[in-house]
Each structure stands twice: as C-alpha cells, then as structure tokens.
Amino acid sequence: MITPTAIRRTADAGTQRSNPAKIYVTEARHEFLKLIRIPIFAVSTIALPVMFYVLFGLAFGGGEDGGVGEDGGVGVTTYMMATYGTFGVIGAALFGFGVSVALERGQGWMRLKRVSPMPPQAYFVAKVVMAVTVSAMIIGALFILGATLGGVRMPAAQWISLGLVLLLGALPFAAMGLAFGYLVGPNSAPAMLNLFYLPMAFASGLWIPIHQLPAFVQGIAPALPPYHFAQLALGTVGAAEGGSQALHAVVLLTFTALFLAVAAWGFRRDEGRTYG
C-alpha cells in the first residue's frame, strides 16, 4: 500500500545540477547488470564462443606448437583465436543490442525513458559500452586460453592490434542489432537473430577457416559483414585471405551506415505509433 506521506519539495530545488557524466555511467552499468543477470544471455554470448574455441581451436588444432603453423605460417590456435573472437564480439553486439531494443520497445520501457529527462543518446551509448565490455570479456578469455593452452606466441603489438580490431568490430554489429531491434517484434527477436547470426557466422568462415569451405559458400562470403570483420581481425595476425584491408574497412563502414539508417527510420516510426 502506498503510504500517504506528506511529500515536501526539497528546499534546495534548482540549486543542484544533474551530472551528465554520472547519467552515462549509471546507464551503462545498469545496461551491463541487466543483461549479465539473465543466465541465457551470459551463457550464450560469453560461454559459447569460448567453448567453441576450446573444442575446435584447442582440442583439434592444439598442442605445443599450435601457435605456429607447420610451414611457418599462422597456427590453428592463433587463426581461430581471431575468428572465434570475431564470432563472440558479433554475438555480444547483435544480441545485446537487438534483443534488448526489441524487448524494450515492445514492453514500453523505452517510452518511459523517452518521457524522462534522460539524454536520448545515453540509452544508446550505454548499450554500446555494454556490448564493448562483454566483447572485452570474451576477447580476454580467448587470449588467456590461446596464450596458455593454445601456445599462441605473438609480438605484443599484434596482441594489441588484434584486441583493438575485435573491440572496434563491435560497433558495426551493434548497429546491425539496433536495426534488427526496430524491425522485429519482442517475442521473435532472439529466434530471428539466431537465424541470421549462425548461418552468417558459418558462411563467413568464423567456425571453419574460409578456405576450407565449399566454393559456393566462399562466393557468398564477401556479401556478408562478418566476413569482412574476420578478414580485418585475421589481417592483424597475418592470416588474411588477401584483398585490401582498407576495402574490408570501407565495406564494414558502409554496412554500419546502412544499419543506422534503418534504425533511425524505426526510431522515427515509433514516434507516430498508436498508444491506445
């Protein structure tokens, strides 16, 4: 029961100011807590890529010399650290954004946020921070496994550049998730995303190296954003398929712009929606 307490206006009203930096920090922290407390999210986005790396990267291609290939090229554990890193980051960005936006649109949480004085950017910035944080956790786990069990040996500069490329790769896929969040309903969002995510990951060579895939799959890979992301990540460890790294970056940026345009359209469409 709501107690009829006398509510007085605080005497110092108007003298304090809300702290914008604090809003962003709180928002990002809650965004992270909100998702990490959902077991299915934590398990499928963090544990799955790590487990795949252990099974396919370490168990099959592992061993003492897994970090270095037989012909002096890149070993399986190094190669797959890049591709499963790509897979993990895409999952975190896609699901962290897509499912939560679809849910929060459908349930009206976003409307409550929109009538509040929250800066609208804070909502999206918080989700980006969350996606990057979860990505960092996945990358960290893969790096530790790679360096210890996988015997991956690289110069520090390569570790850093691979880590950075993987982290930055969260952005295009966050945009993709956002676009999805505006296109699909709250109930179908997880299923729809998986329907795109898993085949796309396979066809882009995130599970099995692209050169081992059937020719026709190799043919469609360049049309898929994860392929370009994976090639950028592989490029940092000297295992890219060839083709210009700059071109991969441009393709990803173009996809990002496209996804953001779709999301912006969805955002505006929501403004005119029936509210009963």
Partner: peptide, 15 residues
C-alpha cells in the same frame, strides 16, 4: 520538471 507514470511499462526484470 515532469514525472510520468505510463499505463504499461515493461521494466527490465533483472534490475
């Protein structure tokens, strides 16, 4: 300067 309570607001359940 405004506080609002809407009819249906699906609040994140894990906060």
């Amino acid at each position: 300067r405004m506080g609002v309570m809407l009819q249906a607001s699906g609040v994140p359940e894990t906060l």
